[in-house]
């Protein structure tokens, strides 16, 4: 061991910024968070005793909102690229696009929840209502935090606190945004596509079955 003076205290052992590493660690933890929620939903699939279940999920509408969220991720990439080049106008434009697209997604979700309530599905209705609404609700809360974050980045940039020199701030927000987007892809795939597709088929089968039964008579 020896003492060498003049070592830069500012360096990090991995070369990665502490805050960026923190975001990665947080996202790792959040994987478990959503993994648990999605797992809970899957465990309780088809166990509800009454009330609407997967058949009320609308794949067409959700496909649109999923597409909007995906596009917001694209905008996030463009926002980061812009600020790294020092293009503040581009950064602000694309960041606002991210926030607006995120808000559209939240709008779809609010519409979906209201529609379900209209059809008699609330978190108190049955197991499906509890698991589905709490899971997607937590995802919506994550998106909402992201939207607020985007707006605060834009405002901070006007105050001169976000600039090319600390594009890392935007990169970290971007990591979060992309993660939330990926979680939605998983939910869309596992809960909507696989779940509701099966449910529609089952519904179709029973219709066909009824039709055949009717034709026999």
């Amino acid at each position: 061991m020896q003492y060498v003076t003049g070592i830069d205290d500012h360096r990090t052992s991995t070369g990665l910024d502490n805050r960026k590493l923190l975001m990665w660690a947080f996202l790792g933890s959040d994987v478990m968070f959503f993994g648990t929620l999605i797992g809970t939903h899957l465990i309780y699939r088809n166990r509800s005793l009454s009330g609407p279940q997967e058949e009320i999920l609308s794949i067409p509408i959700t496909t649109v909102s999923t597409f909007v969220l995906l596009m917001s991720s694209l905008a996030m990439v463009l926002a980061l690229a812009a600020i790294q080049r020092g293009n503040m106008g581009g950064f602000r434009f694309w960041t606002v696009v991210v926030a607006v697209f995120g808000s559209i997604f939240i709008g779809f979700q609010m519409f979906e929840f209201a529609e379900f309530a209209h059809l008699g599905l609330t978190p108190r209705t049955n197991l499906f209502g509890s698991t589905f609404l709490v899971m997607t609700g937590f995802h919506g809360a994550h998106v909402t935090v992201g939207i607020l974050w985007m707006w605060s980045l834009v405002f901070a940039s006007f105050k001169g606190k976000i600039h090319q020199g600390n594009a890392l701030q935007v990169e970290i927000a971007g990591l979060y945004w992309h993660f939330v987007d990926i979680v939605w892809i998983v939910i869309f795939g596992v809960v909507y596509l696989i779940g509701a597709y099966g449910a529609e088929n089952r519904a179709l089968e029973s219709v066909e079955h009824a039709a055949r039964a009717a034709s026999l008579i």
């Binding site: 809970t40 465990i43 309780y44 166990r47 509800s48 005793l49 978190p123 108190r124 209705t125 049955n126 197991l127 209502g129 509890s130 698991t131 709490v134």
Partner: peptide, 14 residues
């Protein structure tokens, strides 16, 4: 809030 995650009586929770 009356959700059903552990409601074994009315909702058939596990």
């Amino acid at each position: 809030f009356g959700t059903n995650f552990f409601d074994t009586v009315g909702a058939g929770a596990d």
